[in-house]
Amino acid sequence: MAKVSFDVNGETHQFELDTRTTLLDALREHLHLTGTKKGCDHGQCGACTVIVDGRRINSCLTLAVMHQGDEITTIEGLGTPDALHPLQAAFVEHDGYQCGYCTPGQICSAVAVLAEVKAGIPSHVTTDLNAPVRLTNAELRERMSGNICRCGAYSNIAEAISAVAGRSA
């Protein structure tokens, strides 16, 4: 067991945890923030994506005790059913989901993708590393490819993200 504390959605939480506890399970099983999903527990599906200190990570691939003092944003921190984040509203409007299980991860990823593009961070498909990064169809799809949607809502997810980014998919 080990003590750790970190912020989740603006609130500081103190834990005494089994050191084997992943950040994902700390959120889901200890804080009961079950919006972050466990799809594979192996970093293969992206359903557990959260934003840690501004960067998106798979929360199943990191231990909770590694996050002392970190600021973590989960899907619950983005918006609520009565006050949706613009991306959450866009996913509803564009039907960017079906079963809903990958959705929180998709939305957290999308929030981070828009920030990455704004910050000029290149991706595997960025052709010109010296020019500002543009959110092309290829950039969007490449950057979102760590988030699997087996229902196959990709085309609608791309439209939802693009709508928020002010472009067409």
Partner: peptide
């Protein structure tokens, strides 16, 4: 739009 959409997109479903 799906009536349960606000729940699914906020992780509260």
């Amino acid at each position: 739009s799906r009536i349960e959409g606000p729940l699914k997109t906020t992780g509260t479903a």
